[in-house]
Nucleic acid binder design. Structure first.
Lengths: 149, 149
DNA sequence: TATTGTTATACTCTATAACTATA
DNA sequence: TATAGTTATAGAGTATAACAATA
């Protein structure tokens, strides 16, 4: 009789856990950076997504920033109050709201771009630029993979 | 005059965002699975970690499961009430508490192991077993990389 | 003095459902 | 009827500080 096989994978080889741990180790310096403007991870993601894709509706932001719509509603309200974003009704479909990054929002992004670039350089230097690219490729492919039944 | 370079990377090539998006796409079916036992992601991680490493102290659990100690305190209290874990003072250092998975905890893990295995098979099938291994290798290396100054 | 873990507090996100307005 | 977004609500995690017990 041999031993039974382990019930589940080692947690290092569990993809959800490995993704979380890896993310935590990368996020630490970034959270420190963002804390200096009183902005959190979620708001930063929203800002990045909308700056990248241009004026867009909320459902699309929620999807791209990995946030639920009710969470996003609140986040956008405070970000609008802080002057980082503006919202306007869609002219063609009045159920929709179009969100745009304001000048102040762009300024906040710029304010962090230098330091963010430094963090990326450090990452590339210590982890290796080729490995970083490989990892990003794999993550994009994973994201595109359909796991539904 | 050429255009200015983009301020920041495309979000698909931002490591924190890519890690989060990839994780979300993998977690969806797992969350559905766990919901059937009324357990959440965090409790599942704690269970997996302690089952894997054996009886261990809370600071180590917090680190391995990516949770803060105050969050873990509450989680462990409810898991102990649910009978999934037991806690006992460390005999050699009475500041410490040693956490152990109970029979009921092991049973809960077993109850999900078949379905969890199916999800993993599907992942390997659709994403490719070699790519999965490559990705896990890179994530482990990333986790081991030191990004402090 | 430093470490382990708990408690307290304020804030935020999660998850779901019910709801409004519009299509 | 379906979709976009808001509101409500309960539960849970985040983050920090202060604290007690122990080393």
């Amino acid at each position: 009789m041999t031993d039974k096989p382990p019930i589940l994978r080692r947690t290092e080889r569990s993809l959800p856990i490995a993704l979380l741990r890896a993310r935590e180790s990368v996020m630490e310096p970034i959270r420190d950076m963002l804390a200096t403007s009183g902005i959190n991870e979620q708001k930063w993601r929203v800002l990045r997504v909308v700056q990248e894709q241009g004026p867009m509706e909320q459902t699309a932001i929620a999807q791209a920033a990995c946030l639920l719509l009710p969470s996003l509603t609140r986040i956008l309200r405070t970000m609008e109050e802080e002057g980082l974003l503006s919202r306007a009704p869609d002219l063609h479909d009045r159920r929709k709201t179009i969100v745009t990054v304001t000048e102040a929002g762009l300024a906040l992004i710029s304010a962090h771009s230098a330091q963010s670039g430094q963090l990326l350089s450090r990452l590339e230097q210590r982890f290796g630029p080729e490995r970083l690219n490989q990892l990003l490729d794999l993550l994009e492919e994973l994201r595109r993979t359909d796991f539904s039944e």
